[in-house]
Amino acid sequence: MLKGTAPESNEVKDGDFCMVISGTHKGKSGIARDLNISKTGHLTITIVQTDGNRFKTLGKNVTVQKANVA
């Protein structure tokens, strides 16, 4: 668990705008797609960035954000 930081909501749903807060893709954001529970019980998420790039990350590494209106 991260010290002193509590995500607004960690209940990620398909279509939510998410920010990656830890791991390899820290600092990246996008729309959550293809949520899956792995055999080991961890949530994996495919994040689709605004430029169309995709990457996979663990659910524990993301926080749900308000939509980016840039």
Score class of each variant (00 low, 15 high):
Val12Trp: 07
Gly15Thr: 02
Glu11Gly: 10
Lys66Ser: 14
Ala32Tyr: 08
Glu11Lys: 14
Asn61Gly: 01
Leu2Val: 10
Leu43Tyr: 08
Met1Cys: 03
Lys28His: 09
Gly59Asp: 07
Gly41Ser: 08
Val64Ser: 04
Gln65Lys: 07
Val69Ala: 13
Arg54Phe: 03
Thr57Asp: 00
Lys60Glu: 05
Val12Ala: 15
Phe55Gln: 13
Cys18Val: 15
Asp14Ala: 06
Leu2Pro: 06
Lys56Arg: 08
Arg54Val: 04
Leu35Glu: 10
Gly15Asn: 08
Thr24Arg: 12
Cys18Met: 06
Asp16Met: 02
Thr50Asp: 10
Thr5Met: 15
Ala67Phe: 13
Val12Glu: 00
Thr46Arg: 11
Phe17Lys: 13
Val62Gly: 01
Asp51Arg: 05
Thr5Asp: 12
Gly41Phe: 02
Ala6Cys: 04
Gly23Asn: 05
Leu2Gln: 14
Gln49Arg: 14
Ala70Ser: 05
Pro7Ile: 09
Ile37Cys: 05
Asn53Met: 06
Leu58Trp: 14
Cys18Trp: 01
Gly52Ala: 12
Thr24Tyr: 05
Lys56Tyr: 00
Arg33Ser: 08
Leu43Met: 15
Thr24Ile: 07
Gly27Thr: 04
Lys13Ala: 05
Val20Ile: 12
Asp51Thr: 10
Ile45Gly: 04
Thr50Leu: 10
Lys56Trp: 03
Phe55Met: 04
Asn61Leu: 01
Ile37Thr: 10
Leu2Asp: 07
Asn53Lys: 13
Leu43Trp: 04
Thr46Asn: 13
Gly15His: 13
Thr24Glu: 10
Gly41Asp: 05
Lys56Ser: 09
Lys39Gln: 04
Asp51Phe: 05
Gly59Ile: 08
Thr63Glu: 13
Glu11Ser: 14
Gln49Leu: 13
Asn10Glu: 12
Gly15Trp: 08
Thr57Ile: 03
